[in-house]
């Protein structure tokens, strides 16, 4: 298990648990089982993540509160967009 804040640009993770602000993040789609992809990160600053068709800027301290399981994505065709929980 890792934290969303630790993922590098281009890496994906499946959300295991949102530890803080769970309710407000859940409304945006940050729910256990959803897949997020880190698109950009500002050194020492926020992250830009893809979730479904949406893109969110997340403060580092928030991203550190999202537990994820990194997803390997090296094989097979690249999925255009991530999928939410199924």
């Amino acid at each position: 298990m890792r934290r969303l804040a630790e993922l590098k640009p281009g890496e994906r993770g499946r959300i295991l648990e949102v530890i803080a602000m769970a309710e407000s993040l859940a409304a945006l789609g940050f729910i256990p089982g959803a897949t997020v992809r880190v698109r950009q990160r500002v050194r020492g600053g926020p992250l830009l993540v893809d979730l479904g068709e949406s893109m969110y800027a997340l403060g580092r301290e928030i991203a550190a509160m999202v537990a994820v399981e990194p997803e390997m994505d090296c094989l097979g065709p690249r999925r255009g967009t991530s999928q939410r929980g199924r």
Partner: peptide, 9 residues
């Protein structure tokens, strides 16, 4: 306030 913001294309 912590940054949680949608970024639009």
């Amino acid at each position: 306030s912590p940054l949680v913001m949608e970024v639009f294309p």
